[in-house]
Each structure stands twice: as C-alpha cells, then as structure tokens.
Design a protein around this nucleic acid. Structure first.
Lengths: 112, 112
DNA sequence: ACTATAGTTTTAGAAATATGGAAGTATAAT
DNA sequence: ATTATACTTCCATATTTCTAAAACTATAGT
C-alpha cells in the first residue's frame, strides 16, 4: 500500500462516526459478497445522525475503498471491505512498526 | 484501547507529514530508551517543512502518545512509541476486522 | 555579557471537514 | 398516476486543521 492510500484510509477511519460505521459493518459482515452489511436506514437508527451527514461519511469511507455499496430495492446496503483494512494493517506493521510490534504478518487477502 | 484513543491515534497518523515523521522515527528507532530517535533539526532537513509547522505536527503526535520527546543539549530528540502503535493495530484487528483479516494477534507490549 | 543555535509558542489567515435543511432521484406501494 | 420511502446531492454555515511569520525560551559557545 502506498503512503497516500494509507493516509486516505487512516483519514477515513479517523473520525468518531465513521469509525462507528465501520465497526457496525464489520460486525454485520459476511464473507459471502451478496450477504451481510447494513442498509443506510439501519445505520441511521443505530448511530443517530442526520441522513445527509451519514451519507457524507459513507461517501468518505467508500472513496477510501473501506466499504462498498450495493442496491437492494430502494435501500442501499453497505458492506465492509476487509481486504482494504488488512492492507492498511499490513502497511502499518511493515512501514510503521519495523517488525518490532510483535505481530505476525498477514497472509494474502482472499476476501474483497 | 478505547474508541476515542483510537480516533486520536488514527487522526495523528492521517496526515502526510505526520505519517512521514512517524516512519522516519520508526526507522531510527532503538529498543533502548536513551538511544535512537531523531532531533527536530534532522527531521526538518529530511522533510522540508518550516520549523513551526514541524513543531505543530510533533505536538499532535506527542498528544496522541505515538512519540515522545527527550532533551539533549539544546536539541529535542523525538522517539517513536511502538507500544502505542501496537495497541492501535491490535484495536484495528479486534474491533475492525472481526478476526477475518488473517493476522495473528500481537503479544503484550514490552517496549514503551 | 553577548551571540548563535535549536526549538517552541503565539497568532492570524487559508484550507479542509463536518453538519444538516432543502431539494432532488429512484424504486415501491396503492 | 399519485404518494411514500430510502437515500443522495446541493448548499450554506460552523468548526477544525494546517501553515508559517513573528516573537519567545533555553542552552551552548565566545
């Protein structure tokens, strides 16, 4: 992962509401592409933010490739992109820990 | 690590110059407390930023506990706090990866 | 004591982010 | 066709973050 990509991912996660969104989506994650994730309406209920605000944050996370949307009826279901998170963690371990963080490096990503 | 602490750490790293600073400090790291790290002047040379700007970013990283200063003559030497980085990575793996990122969890930190 | 060096703090302006009302788009239900 | 639902985009405002010149502090050298 390039430094610029890392900065984008870190920026996306460096905000209370967005980190909460991401955590919710990770909790609701399914390895199967077509399952799991949460609709915007469900996130609004859980996080207590105005629709335009949530929409703004969802866009930020989407731009950072940390989540992705899929349409289902008139809902839009967002799903966590764990592969991107894994890339970020790998970057942090390789570039920002110099092997001194006592963590075993990840295997190659298999899930999008 | 609490969510708020994670947001602080992520915010500190979510900026080009600060991420560079941190990377330099990690590269110059020594496990021995009194060794390693870089003086502000050295960072200025490497990163090409105005002194007040660098000072500002160093303060941000310090507030997030990701680095810490020690005085040496009239220089101030900053050192990476790898334990905090490890905590952040652990948080990301536990709370934001739901065990699906194929990474072995870290052992307990030993270095400050 | 004076001067230079190394860095910080203050301060002010510029730029980027965050928030939410109002209006718009698309699908579903009647 | 009309209405309701689910969400987004547009817009204006508020807040936060970034940058660097100017002024300050502390240590070192002469």
């Amino acid at each position: 992962m390039e430094t610029n990509t890392a900065v984008s991912a870190l920026s996306a996660l460096a905000q209370e509401t967005r980190l909460q969104i991401f955590k919710e989506l990770v909790a609701a994650h399914s390895m199967t592409e077509e399952e799991g994730g949460l609709a915007v309406g469900e996130l609004i209920k859980r996080l207590d933010v105005a629709p335009p605000t949530l929409s703004f944050h969802l866009k930020e996370l989407t731009n950072a490739r940390l989540i992705s949307p899929r349409k289902k009826g008139r809902s839009i279901i967002y799903r966590a992109n764990l592969a991107e998170m894994q890339s970020l963690v790998t970057f942090l371990l390789q570039d920002c820990c110099s092997g001194a963080c006592g963590v075993t490096l990840p295997v190659t990503a298999t899930d999008s």
